[in-house]
Design a protein around this nucleic acid. Structure first.
Lengths: 116, 116
DNA sequence: AGTATCGTGTACTATGTAGTACACACTACT
DNA sequence: AGTAGTGTGTACTACATAGTACACGATACT
C-alpha cells in the first residue's frame, strides 16, 4: 500500500472513536496546511520530509520506522549507524537480505543480551 | 576527512604511476565536466549523486560503500533491504550500534554459513 | 616557440523537495 | 437559516540537487 492511503486509513480508524482526528485537526497538531495533508493522504504528492513523518507517526500512534519505510525512507539515525562503519554493515545487511525474520530477530536478541 | 579531498588523494596516488588519472581524464571516463569534478574534489560543491559516486569508485578502484559513506549516503540496495522489513532491521541496527566490529563480523560470517 | 593538457573561475539551468496561501463546495449542528 | 467544521482544487514559492558550458591562466611536451 502507498504511504498516503495508509495514513488515511489509520487516521480514519482513529477518527471513528475520537473526532479530534479529522484531517484538519491532525494537520493542525502536526503543523501542516490541511490542503497539503489532503494531497499527501491521497498520494497526489510525494510523502513529506522525515521530520514531518515523525510527527505524523507520533500523533497517529504508529511505528515511526514503518511509516518512514512506506515513504521509501530510512531513519536518519539508522543511516548514521551504517555510515560510521559502512563496508562492515554493508556486508552484514547483504548477508541478512535473504535470512528469515526469526533468524534476524534471534540475532537482535542475542546482541541485546550482550554475548560478545 | 571530506569526500572530495579523499577522492583527490586517491586519484593523485593513482596518477603517480598512471598518467591517465588526471582530473580531466577521470572526469571523461566517469562522464562529468572537468570543472565539476574539480569543485567536487576541493569540496566546493556537495558530493555528486549515488550513481556518479559509483562510477567514480569503480574508476578509482575504491570501495563503493565506503565512498558513499564519506558522502553521507547509503547505497540504494541497502536501503531497500532495510525498508522491506523496517521495524525488524531498525531494531537490529540499533542493537548493533555499540557492538564492536569483530562481533558484527562474526554475525555476518555465521549468517553466511547459513546456520538458521 | 608553439601547442596540448592541466586544473579552475564564473555563469547558468533543469528538476525535485517541501511545503504555504486562499478560495471553494459540502455536511453537520443548533 | 446560519455558521462552524470538513476535505479539496489551484496557484505559487524558496531552497536544494546535480549538474553543463565556456573561458582563462599555468604547466609540460617536442
Amino acid at each position: 500500500m502507498e504511504f498516503g492511503s495508509y495514513v488515511r486509513d489509520v487516521r480514519e480508524r482513529r477518527l471513528n472513536d475520537d473526532r479530534s482526528y479529522s484531517l484538519r485537526q491532525v494537520a493542525g497538531r502536526v503543523g501542516l496546511e490541511p490542503a497539503y495533508l489532503s494531497k499527501i493522504e491521497r498520494d497526489v504528492t510525494a510523502p513529506p520530509s522525515e521530520e514531518t513523518i515523525g510527527r505524523l507517526a507520533e500523533d497517529l500512534g504508529e511505528d515511526r520506522d514503518l511509516l518512514l519505510a512506506m515513504a521509501g525512507k530510512v531513519s536518519n539515525d539508522l543511516r548514521q549507524i551504517i555510515i560510521r562503519r559502512a563496508p562492515l554493515f554493508a556486508e552484514l545487511l547483504r548477508q541478512l537480505k535473504e535470512a528469515p525474520d526469526h533468524a534476524v530477530l534471534r540475532i537482535a536478541r542475542e546482541v541485546r543480551d550482550g554475548d560478545w
